[in-house]
Amino acid sequence: MGMISEFKEFISRGNVVDLAVGVVIGAAFGKIVTALVDGIVMPVIGFVTQGNASVSDWRYVLRPAQLDSAGKEVAAEVAVRYGLFLQTVLDFLLIALVIFLFLKAYNRVRKPAPAPATPEDVLLLREIRDALKNKP
Rank of each mutant, 00 (worst) to 15 (best):
G30V: 06
I99V: 11
R59Q: 15
W58K: 04
L86S: 01
V109N: 02
W58C: 01
V33E: 00
L94G: 03
A27P: 03
A28I: 07
A28V: 08
T49I: 12
P114C: 13
W58L: 03
S69T: 10
G46D: 10
R110G: 02
R63I: 11
V33N: 00
T34N: 08
L123K: 11
T88Q: 12
A65V: 07
L93H: 01
D68M: 15
F102S: 11
F100T: 13
L123C: 13
V89A: 09
L62K: 05
A20G: 15
Y60V: 09
P116R: 12
R81I: 09
K72N: 14
P114Q: 14
F85M: 13
V33L: 05
Y60L: 12
A113I: 07
P112L: 15
G83M: 03
S54N: 12
V48H: 01
G71A: 07
A75F: 14
V78R: 06
M42H: 02
L84H: 14
G22T: 12
V74Q: 14
D68E: 14
P43R: 00
N107E: 11
A65P: 00
A117F: 10
P64Q: 06
L101E: 04
R110A: 06
I25K: 07
G39C: 03
K111W: 02
Q66T: 13
K104F: 15
L97W: 06
D121W: 05
V55T: 03
R110L: 02
A115C: 03
K111R: 10
E120F: 11
A105M: 12
A79N: 02
N52A: 08
G26S: 10
G39T: 00
K72M: 09
A35L: 06
L67I: 15
V61K: 02
I95R: 08
T118Q: 12
Q87E: 11
D38A: 06
E120S: 13
T34I: 14
V78E: 02
L36R: 00
G51V: 09
V98T: 09
G30C: 09
F92K: 03
P112Y: 14
L94R: 00
V78C: 02
F92G: 05
L97Y: 06
A35W: 07
V48M: 10
G30T: 07
D57M: 03
L101R: 04
G39W: 00
L62G: 03
G39Q: 00
K72S: 11
V41I: 10
F85L: 14
E73Y: 05
A27C: 05
L101W: 08
P116D: 08
D68K: 13
I25E: 05
A65F: 07
I99C: 07
L62W: 07
E120V: 15
T118G: 03
I99L: 07
L84T: 13
S54D: 10
T34P: 00
F102V: 15
K104I: 13
V89E: 04
V48A: 11
A76T: 01
S56L: 01
V78L: 08
Q50S: 11
V89G: 01
V78Y: 01
A115Y: 03
R59A: 15
L94I: 12
A76Q: 07
V61P: 09
V74E: 13
L97C: 07
L90C: 02
A20F: 14
V61F: 03
I40A: 02
V122L: 08
K111M: 06
V78I: 09
V122R: 05
L101F: 12
R108V: 14
G46S: 09
V23H: 05
V80K: 00
A96S: 01
D38P: 02
K111G: 07
Y106A: 13
E120D: 15
